[in-house]
Design a protein around this nucleic acid. Structure first.
Length: 604
RNA sequence: CGGGGCGUAGCGCAGCCCGGUUAGCGCACUAGUCUGGGGGACUAGAGGUCGGAGGUUCAAAUCCUCUCGCCCCGACCA
């Protein structure tokens, strides 16, 4: 490709809207162009990277017996109504009506459509197992896109779905996907951590997230440096300190003016935050007949329930754990009026002496066994000393609902955990039969019995992966593309000018030789000054750079430079193809060195 | 959805508080001259519904109201 013909333009200045490196660099090199919040054009350079990433997707999916399909991105509402997600999903789903007034939506994911497809093709266990995948546009109308391609509304995802006769089949297939995913990321030059993730209300039995570790990540991970334990903060558990045993002391009210936060309270009383109990009020939407609710049902079988959560003062509530503990369909912070309605006082709340109808008190297991805590008195300006679970109040539910944080003890070995930020670049999920059952994807087994297909789903976001690679591989000057997904292999710079008329024909000849050797070459034949060409080459970040200039030609050499290592050397004209090929091979070898066996590890 | 910030040329910004000729600057762009291995210099150009609508005023980029959009923090998130 001659750069004089390439559809692109580099920007010297950083667009004001971009904060993170990948976003800035992609805009500066015109890989992408925004047309609305979280909606981007892919220009030729970006498109070439995307296409290479997707080629790797195809190779790895095919290698684990995947078959590529393409499903629509506009779906009839009926598909989503059958699994209940039409109602369950809020404004994230973009809905529209077709010309006939029928409800439609833009696909956020394709479980329903895949299960429906299977339902129409599969009749017998003899047709199972199989895996289908596609590389398709999704639309999720996020309230808040951010970080360039890290979090967008319209995006391309490779999503795969496996179909097995039983859980054993899924269990056997899942590790193959796990390895294929590592292969994909490693082949893209990206190191990731696989952590077990929340299966939540999806009812699945196992799920992993593949996280690229970067400070710009949206998720927090807790990692043990001494053992293999690592988990998303949503599900991370930790070794809680054993409270000092003490005989319960008499309950005692104490005046604590203007102490609505734990920090204020601990400071005022001169006690550690760990000696206090923190009340957090949430409202959960639950199934009406749920045991945890223990109350009557509404007409629609769902009801809102005030959840009174108590954790130790030095810890945070983990809403995911709480949500799972009360089997909530949804969870949100409570309004002040809702808190007062049960006789509690915001800022001075405690489970002692509140009304217990229509409320579930969930107490962290550590609080339940900690004696003589300071808690609120449900009265402005007062707290209670020596609050003891079992004596002064009783929980409806004692569970682990505290959020793990950096410094907490590893649940396996007790070593302090380290907190890092990560971007979720992929996930894999043992779905089970939720979607197949709803969509009628059943098969006849050996005994002629109809059974739902057991499904797994596996996704990777292409753009987010590209952005994560840039976050991992860039410097002050620009991007540093792994050769496997670089838009071109070689940047060929012709430093031609009127005093060196021999440069242009020499560079033309080298261009032809490199292309004939099977290399992808971006040939900077523009009438630009050397500095512009060098800077653009650094910004775009192709793995190997070849510079042809009047100076070198006088001694019969060109300059060869490796972007990743900075290694630079001169190569005789006659050896250019061999030298560039060897340099590219070195970059490929680096990629191959990243690919390795990643046995499935579980933390449970 | 809550909080904050910003919309002036393709990009980065000044001007707005305190209304008043023809709305400026840098980069990028066009033409020319010089220059010629890390974003060069000079000369001459072109490029604007000042996000939009309404209002106040003799006069609005500037003041008021409404509205749209974008970015950041938080909440949410298959």
């Amino acid at each position: 490709m001659r750069m004089s013909k390439l559809f692109f333009r580099t920007l010297r200045e950083v667009p004001a809207d971009a904060e993170i490196a990948s976003h800035q660099l992609m805009l500066r090199a015109t890989l992408i162009h925004p047309i609305a919040a979280g909606i981007f054009d892919y220009l030729p350079l970006g498109q070439r990277i995307k296409a290479k990433v997707e080629r790797i997707f195809r190779e790895e999916m095919d290698a684990i017996d995947g078959q590529e399909v393409t499903l629509p991105m506009v779906h009839p509402a009926e598909m989503w109504q059958r699994t209940g997600r039409w109602q369950a999903i809020g404004s994230d789903m973009a809905r529209l009506k077709d010309a006939g007034g029928r409800d439609m939506c833009l696909g956020m994911t394709h479980e329903e459509i895949m299960a429906d497809l299977a339902a129409h093709v599969v009749r017998s266990y003899r047709q199972l197992p199989f895996m289908l995948y596609q590389i398709q546009t999704k639309f999720r109308d996020e309230r808040r896109p951010r970080g360039g391609l890290i979090r967008v509304r319209e995006f391309t995802m490779k999503d795969a779905y496996s179909f097995d006769t039983d859980l054993a089949g899924l269990d056997a297939y899942y590790p193959r996907v796990y390895q294929a995913y590592f292969n994909i990321f490693h082949r893209c030059g990206l190191e990731v951590l696989a952590v077990e993730s929340d299966t939540g209300m999806m009812g699945g039995t196992m799920a992993h997230e593949f996280m690229a570790i970067t400070p710009v990540g949206e998720d927090t991970l807790l990692i043990c440096d001494a053992c293999p334990y690592k988990a998303n903060r949503q599900v991370a558990v930790f070794r809680k300190p054993e409270p000092m045993p003490a005989a319960p002391a008499p309950l005692e009210a104490v005046s604590t003016p203007d102490t609505t936060t734990i920090e204020d309270l601990a400071g005022y009383l001169g006690i550690p935050a760990a000696a206090t109990a923190k009340a957090v009020f949430m409202v959960a939407t639950v199934e009406g007949g749920d045991a945890a609710a223990g109350h009557g049902t509404d007409g629609d079988g769902k009801r809102d329930l005030l959840v009174f959560a108590v954790v130790r003062g030095d810890m945070e509530l983990n809403e995911t754990k709480l949500s799972n503990a009360v089997k909530a369909l949804a969870l949100r912070p409570a309004q002040v009026e809702e808190v007062r309605a049960i006789g509690a006082e915001p800022g001075y709340g405690s489970p002692v002496g509140i009304r217990r109808d229509g409320v579930v008190v969930v107490v962290d297991d550590l609080v339940a066994r900690s004696p003589n805590l300071v808690a609120g008195a449900n009265r402005v300006g007062y707290h209670l000393r020596n609050v003891n679970h079992g004596r002064d109040y009783t929980a409806d539910l004692v569970a682990d609902i505290a959020a793990a944080a950096g410094g907490h003890g590893c649940p396996r070995c007790g070593t302090p955990l380290r907190a890092v930020r990560g971007v979720e670049v992929g996930n894999i999920f043992k779905l089970g039969t939720k979607y197949s059952a709803a969509m009628g994807a059943v098969f006849d087994d050996e005994d002629g019995q109809a059974r739902p297909i057991v499904m797994g789903s596996y996704g990777i976001g292409t753009g987010r992966l590209m952005a994560s690679v840039i976050e991992a591989h860039h410097d002050e000057a620009g991007m540093i593309w792994p050769i496997s997904i670089a838009p071109f292999h070689v940047a060929l710079l012709a430093l031609a000018n009127e005093r060196s008329p021999e440069v242009a024909p020499a560079a033309d000849a080298i261009y032809g030789q490199l292309v004939d050797a099977g290399l992808e070459v971006l040939y900077d034949d523009r009438a630009e000054r050397p500095g512009v060409k060098f800077n653009d080459a650094d910004l775009i970040g192709l793995p190997v750079r070849v510079t042809v200039g009047g100076r070198g030609l006088q001694s019969g050499v060109v300059e060869l430079r490796i972007r990743r290592t900075g290694e630079t050397r001169e190569v005789p004209l006659a050896d250019v193809v061999a030298g560039v090929s060897a340099a590219c091979e070195g970059e490929w070898a680096w990629i191959r060195g990243l690919v390795r066996e990643m046995p499935l590890a579980t933390d449970r």
